[in-house]
Design a protein around this nucleic acid. Sequence first.
DNA 1: AATGTAGTCAACCGCTGGCGG
DNA 2: TCCGCCAGCGGTTGACTACAT
Length: 307
Amino acid sequence: MGRPPCCDEMVVKKGPWTPEEDKKLVEYIQRHGHGSWRNLPKNAGLNRCGKSCRLRWTNYLRPDVKRGKFSEDEEQIIIHLHSILGNKWSTISRRLPGRTDNEIKNYWNTHLKKKLLLMGVDPVTHAPRTDLDLLALLPVLLAAATGLGNLGSSSSDAPGLQADPVHLVRLRVLQTLIQATTAGPSIDVMNPLGAASLGCAQPNQQLVGLAPDLSAVANPGGSSFQTGPKTESCSGIAVPVVFSSCAVPTARSVHPPISIPQESAPMDSPASIPFEDWHGLNPGESNADDMICWKDIIDQICWTGQS
DNA sequence: AATGTAGTCAACCGCTGGCGG
DNA sequence: TCCGCCAGCGGTTGACTACAT
């Protein structure tokens, strides 16, 4: 029953491909198409496993493979899609013409993962890292808090919730401070590095001024990032973790909307929460006794940011 | 110049779902 | 319905290179 095994029992060459082998493979596929990968090596005169031929073709020899450095846009798309899809490299690669799943996977593992870690973002969950020592970062937090103290008078041209990333940074820092001051040391402390990175196309001037090192580490390339927002507990209150500009409509316009097949996204995968939907997350609506009314804070910060 | 270490990436390995006998 | 192959996918490995000591 069935067919004979592919190349398990055959003695086939492994390892790097030679230019001659590449030439044979390309010429054969250009003339006949790949057809059955299993039969291709024999027909093309290659002492290789069909699987190896397929890999070589799709990852390297295919004429539409785009090689070279990933652009800023491509990076952001990968990060955004990864926050939604996880390690579905082939699905992600379909959204990046010319890039192979293998290339994206390698780029993620060697570049983007580290970049996110430096920014204080967990590359697996895309949530802010919680494994950093708050005490070590306390001076930075205090400096940032001083900057936040400048909550001056507001003007009539309030921006509403079309939040500038800078305002989101301030909100994030404030959230961290509140956590640090209202909860015990064992609380899940959010990471201000993540706050400072936050998909800021423009740096937070207050943070830059008060804690230049933090800013540099958090955003080494000055690049903006988009990752999926999450909700996290703050003093027992569910609030959106605004470490991502992709949660706000203004930032979405950076890239055209990317439609993800519904079935591709796991049920528990983090979905972007539009900023306007935060009203439902306002703790004041669920618990009138809560000390913090996030909507008010956001309003105040956004108003102040315009001055 | 020699050696060690870290980073990169092509290629392999092993698993899975779909399909055919 | 069962069994086995195929293609595709994600994880991992290892050769190669660049840089530091």
